[in-house]
Amino acid sequence: MAPRVERRFGMTVDQVRCVGCSACVLACADENGVPEGHTRRWVSEVVRGRFPELTAEVWSDCCQHCDNPPCVSSCPTGASHVEPRTGTTQVHKERCTGCKACVASCPYDARYVHPDGYIDKCTLCLHRLERGERTACEAICPTSAILVGDLDDPSSEISRAVRSRHAKQQKLDGGTRPRFFLLQ
């Protein structure tokens, strides 16, 4: 079961607004010192149909900060954990052995092996949230497609967006209960 948390931070990406410019990807890498050739954030594009009847869908993606994160339950050392004040999924790198059980457990393939040996992923800019700032990806987004906030607070902007828009979650079959929503 999901551990008790004070707040449940989540993210929405508005697919009507997102143009796939990758500014968020670069801002994330810069803010968090993501090593060259690695990425905590990425842009996906799906093209469906047969030419010329095509539809395209684009969105910025990252760790889904699940309510029931398999990376936390599969971690043998407690390095992967749910941060109790924000409910975000984090890694204590001093406890990580680099066994990669969490990487295998993540249906979103949101984790990678940092060249220093520990497992790294999106922190939802925890250091910025703690200072009351917006995440680097949300702050840079030129179309304001990214929204981060407390899903437990019914009056927060993100809660209202998830309630009022068609909000799609990815890969629900694994029981991860992701807190990342695509607004359509």
């Binding site: 990758s22 990807v25 990425t39 990425w42 842009v43 996906s44 594009e45 799906v46 093209v47 469906r48 149909g49 047969r50 095509l54 993606d61 393939d109």
Partner: peptide, 8 residues
Amino acid sequence: YAELSTTR
């Protein structure tokens, strides 16, 4: 998916 491309 018909075709999925990603920058990851």
